[in-house]
């Protein structure tokens, strides 16, 4: 059991109050008309499933109902922080470049 912080309403609550919404920042094919079956398959189904630090989406279902991102370690369940989707993306992109 862990506690999550919702950056939208500022509440820190137990995980039961939230719903998991999967891997964050999966890029949609830029030209949907031209994407091949394999590219669509990759976008729809293939996942990083990282063991380690992982960017994921959560929804504050029993609260403000908004979606945000959390950086969480998938083996130790430590949480590095939570951000709105836009704020988190800046951190995420910086990490991906490094």
């Amino acid at each position: 059991m862990f506690q999550l912080h919702c950056p939208h309403c500022g509440a820190t609550r137990e995980e039961e109050e939230f719903s998991y919404a999967g891997e964050a920042y999966i890029a949609r094919p830029a030209n949907p008309e031209e994407a091949s079956d394999a590219e669509w398959g990759d976008y729809l189904f293939m996942r990083k499933n990282t063991r380690g630090w992982f960017w994921e989406q959560w929804q504050h279902t029993a609260g403000c109902r908004k979606v945000f991102v959390v950086k969480r370690h998938t083996a130790s369940y430590q949480i590095a922080g939570s951000w709105t989707l836009a704020e988190g993306k800046a951190h995420y992109l910086k990490e991906s470049e490094a």
């Binding site: 059991m1 998991y20 891997e23 990282t50 994921e56 969480r72 083996a75 369940y77």
Partner: peptide
């Protein structure tokens, strides 16, 4: 558990 996890334990709820 709804979330991705590799810890061989789960949430009490």
């Amino acid at each position: 558990d709804s979330y991705l996890g590799y810890g061989q334990r789960g949430s009490p709820h």
